[in-house]
Design a protein around this nucleic acid. Structure first.
Length: 311
DNA sequence: TCATGCGGGCGAC
DNA sequence: GTCGCCCGCATGA
C-alpha cells in the first residue's frame, strides 16, 4: 500500500549510517544477514525509518519492547511481529500544569482498557481526555516490525511519529504500583493505622517498603525530531521541576483514586513522605535514555504523592 | 486488570 | 496480495 513511499525512504535510510551496522536489508527479505559484525544497543524510542539488529539475548528486544505505546497488529505472518503505534493521550482542553507542562499519557494497549481510559478525565484540569492518534506513516500509525532470526532480532520501523512521546511503560507501571500503595495507605486502611500506631509509639516514621520512585533528569524526554517544531519549549521540557503539581506526563485515568470518572482535585489531603527510591526491575534500555529515572510528583485525591521533593 | 501474542475475518486498494 | 484494523482468545505478570 505505502510501498512507494517506503522505498524512497529506505534509500535515504540505507544511505545513512546507523551506528555503522548493516542496513541493506528489509524485514520482509527471505534471508536476513547473519554476518552481523555489530549489534545495536536497545533503542527505547525508535523513530523514523530505522532498522536495528539486536542480540537474541537482549531482553528488551526479546519482549519487543518500545516506549512508544505499540499494539500488536495482525499481519498474518507468524514470522514477523508487527506493531502499530497508538499515539498519545492528551487533555482535550489542552491544559498545562502550573509549570507549563502538557499532559501526555500512555494509551493503554488493551482495547478495553483504552476505552476505559478515555472515559476518565484529565488529572490536571478534569477535562476530557483525547487520544491523539499516530499518523506518521502516510496517514497511518507508525509500524514496528520484529523478526527473530538466528542469533539476532531484527527490528524495523516505518514512519515518523507525529505526536509527543507518551509516558513510558515503566512510568505507567510505576504509577500502578503507586496506586496500589495508595490503596494500601488509604487513611482507613489497617496498614496505615498500624503505621500511625507505630509512629505514635516510637516517634519514628517507618520508611516505605518499596514505593517506587523514579527520579527525572533534565532532557529525559526529548520529542521526536519531526515533532520538535510543533510545540513549545515548555512542552519539550518534560521533566519534573518544582512541586507545583505533579508529574510531567501525569498518570492515566486508571490511577485516579476511586476509579470511574472521578475528577482529580489538586492534591487534596496531601501527606508528605520522605523521598524514596527503589530500583526498577528490568533494564530499560542500554543506552541513551535507558535506565533513566522518572519524577513522580503526584496530585491525588486520595492520598499523597505531592510528596517527593526533587533533589 | 492489563500487556502481549496469535490468528480469523473483513474491507480498501 | 498487501495492508489496516477489528475482534476474540490465551497466557503471564
Amino acid at each position: 500500500m505505502l510501498k512507494g513511499a517506503d522505498d524512497v525512504l529506505m534509500e535515504h535510510e540505507d544511505s545513512a549510517s546507523q551506528h555503522g551496522e548493516m542496513t541493506n536489508w528489509d524485514i520482509n527479505d527471505i534471508k536476513l544477514p547473519q554476518d552481523v559484525r555489530q549489534i545495536d544497543g536497545f533503542q527505547e524510542w525508535p523513530d523514523s525509518y530505522v532498522k536495528h539488529i539486536y542480540s537474541s539475548e537482549d531482553k528488551n528486544a526479546q519482549r519487543h519492547h518500545s516506549s512508544w505505546a505499540m499494539r500488536n497488529t495482525n499481519n498474518h505472518n507468524s514470522r514477523i511481529l508487527k506493531k502499530s503505534c497508538l499515539g498519545v493521550v492528551v487533555c482535550g482542553n489542552d491544559c498545562s500544569t502550573l509549570d507549563g507542562r502538557k499532559i501526555y499519557l500512555r494509551p493503554a494497549i488493551c482495547d478495553k482498557a483504552r476505552q476505559k481510559q478515555q472515559r476518565k478525565c484529565c488529572p490536571n484540569c478534569s477535562g476530557p481526555l483525547r487520544l491523539l492518534s499516530c499518523r506518521g506513516h502516510g496517514g497511518y500509525p507508525v509500524t514496528n516490525f520484529w523478526r527473530h532470526e538466528g542469533q539476532f532480532i531484527f527490528f524495523q520501523s516505518k514512519g515518523a511519529h507525529d505526536h509527543p512521546r507518551p509516558e513510558t511503560k515503566l512510568e505507567a507501571e510505576a504509577r500502578r504500583s503507586i496506586q496500589k500503595a495508595q490503596t494500601a495507605f488509604s487513611p482507613s486502611s489497617p496498614r496505615l493505622q498500624r503505621i500511625q500506631e507505630i509512629e505514635s509509639l516510637t516517634g519514628a516514621v517507618p520508611t516505605q517498603e518499596a514505593l517506587p520512585l523514579l527520579l527525572s533528569k533534565p532532557d529525559a524526554y526529548p520529542l521526536p525530531d519531526n515533532f520538535r517544531g510543533h510545540i513549545s519549549k515548555s512542552s519539550r521540557e518534560l521533566v519534573l521541576g518544582s512541586c507545583s503539581g505533579w508529574l510531567p506526563y501525569s498518570r492515566t485515568g486508571e490511577d485516579m483514586g476511586s476509579g470511574e470518572g472521578g475528577p482529580c482535585p489538586m492534591a487534596s489531603g496531601t501527606q508528605h513522605h520522605g523521598q524514596l527510591s527503589a530500583p526498577l526491575k528490568g533494564s530499560e534500555g542500554h543506552e541513551g535514555e535507558g535506565g533513566r529515572h522518572v519524577g513522580l510528583n503526584y496530585c491525588n485525591d486520595d492520598v499523597f504523592f505531592n510528596l517527593y521533593p526533587l533533589r
